[in-house]
């Protein structure tokens, strides 16, 4: 059985359309990611799944239940961590966990096995107020709290936003471990590089899904040849590339500029062109696109579709 089945769900707030006929499925025991920038509609979608909001149209089934009519049964099986980590800053680590255990009708001891790996990191600080924990530790405590009632489905809204690269990596490792224990995990994130860590991802932008697939398939569906270019003066290179007649797209990507060209790339022509602009040290290599390249390409084609 699929954990979540969404068919053409639309959600509107007064004039703004937050979600436009969104359809997708999340399979049981899957680690599924929604990837997109702020304002794409991720939080709204998660609130619909958590039965905190009602869709204007379309059908949604979560764990086989309807969030509109069967929300009581659903809420018992669901673990939810909203965008801003929902902890009581003035309660200690242990009191927070104990509180969430109590309101879900369980105890810390009963489900300790499930959270052991995560909670053991912060257990030494269990008498410290949650407000005094570091960002990474808060994140771990919030996850422990969302897990304490042994949910079948865990939905995490931007758990890694504003968290540093090291804590982010650790966090994803924890999610993988939870998945192994049979929990379906749905995560949203604005960081494109985290896509590779999911089984399947949905790229979301302006309330629509650009693509839903495995990260590999999304990368394989990238339509054009991609090249990485490098020079000492990257800014000048970028400007000149954008002005080049056969250049389709040029974007900064770390140490390289990722560029795609109209038709087949004529290296000599490009090198000559750059030479006339005073750039002689260019290094050009064919590269494999990343999720971010794909996202940008899909974004552009989606926008041109819209304007047509």
């Amino acid at each position: 059985m699929d954990a979540i089945v969404a068919e053409k769900i639309t959600k509107q707030f007064k004039e703004t359309v937050a979600l436009k006929e969104v359809s997708f499925q999340v399979r049981a025991h899957e680690l599924f990611g929604f990837i997109g920038p702020d304002g794409a509609g991720k939080t709204t979608l998660f609130r619909l799944i958590a039965s905190l909001m009602l869709p204007n149209s379309g059908s949604l089934k979560v764990l086989g239940l309807d969030p509109v009519t069967e929300f009581k049964a659903l809420r018992k099986k669901l673990g939810y961590m909203p965008g801003r980590f929902s902890l009581y800053q003035d309660l200690t680590v242990e009191e927070n966990l104990d509180f969430y255990a109590t309101i879900f009708g369980t105890t810390i001891e009963e489900n300790y096995d499930l959270i052991k790996d995560i909670y053991s990191h912060i257990e030494p600080f269990k008498t410290r107020p949650a407000g005094k924990l570091s960002g990474g530790m808060k994140q771990k405590l919030a996850l422990s709290c969302a897990l304490i009632h042994k949910p079948e489905l865990l939905i995490l809204d931007e758990p890694t936003t504003g968290v540093d690269a090291v804590s982010r990596k650790e966090f994803w490792q924890m999610l993988k471990n939870l998945q192994k224990q049979g929990i379906t995990v749905v995560v949203s994130t604005p960081y494109m590089d985290e896509a590779a860590l999911c089984d399947r991802v949905a790229l979301i932008q302006k309330g629509s899904l650009l693509s839903v697939d495995t990260p590999e398939n999304i990368i394989n569906s990238f339509k054009t040849e991609l090249y990485g270019l490098r020079s000492v003066d990257m800014y000048n290179l970028l400007i000149q590339l954008k002005a080049y007649a056969f250049c389709e797209n040029a974007h900064l990507f770390g140490q390289y500029i990722h560029a795609s060209f109209k038709g087949e790339l004529n290296r000599n022509d490009l090198l000559n062109y750059l030479k006339t602009k005073g750039i002689e040290d260019v290094e050009i290599t064919g590269i494999k696109p990343g999720i971010e390249d794909c996202f940008m390409q899909l974004m552009v084609s989606n926008e041109t579709l819209e304007t047509v």
């Binding site: 905190l52 909203p82 801003r84 929902s86 009581y88 879900f104 009708g105």
Partner: peptide, 13 residues
């Protein structure tokens, strides 16, 4: 404001 209300609402309370 803290976002804890969201979690309380999705709890069986």
């Amino acid at each position: 404001e803290m976002g804890t209300m969201e979690v309380l609402l999705v709890s069986p309370l």
